[in-house]
Design a binder for these strands. Sequence first.
DNA 1: CGCAACATGTAAGCGGTTACATGATTAC
DNA 2: GTAATCATGTAACCGCTTACATGTTGCG
Lengths: 180, 180
Amino acid sequence: MDVKTVCLGMLTDGKASGYDLKKQFESSFGHFFAAGYGSIYPALSALAEQGLVDCEEIPQEGKPDRKVYAITTEGRHFLLNALQNTSPCHKVRSEFLAMMCFAHLMRPADVEAVLDNRLADIERFKEMFDEIESGGMQDWPPGMRFVLGFGKTIAATMERYINDNRYLLTEQTEEQSVAG
Amino acid sequence: MDVKTVCLGMLTDGKASGYDLKKQFESSFGHFFAAGYGSIYPALSALAEQGLVDCEEIPQEGKPDRKVYAITTEGRHFLLNALQNTSPCHKVRSEFLAMMCFAHLMRPADVEAVLDNRLADIERFKEMFDEIESGGMQDWPPGMRFVLGFGKTIAATMERYINDNRYLLTEQTEEQSVAG
DNA sequence: CGCAACATGTAAGCGGTTACATGATTAC
DNA sequence: GTAATCATGTAACCGCTTACATGTTGCG
């Protein structure tokens, strides 16, 4: 499941340009599968070259031609095949948690700042989730609702955990004076 | 916060070899910051070249010399400086969630298998956490306890969410018959 | 007047993964 | 006998990130 496959999946919902897909990555997919233009455009080119998508070029004035991609029958087969992997991974790479392991070496003010910044990030996610929900989810496939709920639940849990346990990190210990 | 910096942090707890650090990555750090030998050994070499660690080679018979690394004063300064970044990231890359977005295109049996495999993974994490706790945490820095609790809480929440909401994905919908 | 949105792409680089190479000792 | 543990490393590769390049339209 790389960016290519996810793009292919998104195209099962209808034709779209790279620009359109980027917006979808930013909103609904961003919190668990990020991708920038530098990944998306080459991915779409590769998919087109493999015959997994068709590309319709729509001329525009002043802007580059809008390239609208549509999934092909071969693309659908390829995707269905990719979706038969029953052990997809779920990876976390957290500089935040790594840093917190060494909180006893940090200045207390910096620890507080890190925690506050993380809470602010989580808050932004929650706003994003609310925005998506207010846009109407009736026509969404059940998987999307599952994934959105997953994100909301984890975000709420992280927020609560940080608030309930930050005292562990911010109570002064002797070690901190040795740090320098 | 790359592998190099995390290795440096681990060495504040005492001397260690690359092999030792790998074990620590597998146990306590693995769930939020994975690293293999292919990252760790080059990282230690680079740290030694920069003078951030000292390397003591202990000859052994039959095995390669054991190289034990110790953090230097410069290393400590470098680490303290790195720990002043107050916006460390927390990234998730989940093929699992990406796949679940397209559950309506999958065979129901495959969806079930994916969910069961994820639950099994979570179970393994929980076992790991219990094992760490039973090994005694009294002498652990507070940050480690915070991070361990974080992992346990998120794992429990994920497990509960999947169990409570998998019905969303496994109830048959019309779309599934169109998938081919 | 300046910024955001629209719209597509390339190229260099970076960091991490995977596979390979070697080989003794110990426990089952 | 065979698998796991101890022990270190290299090299190729892969996929994503970042920075760069270009240019119009419309809003405040």
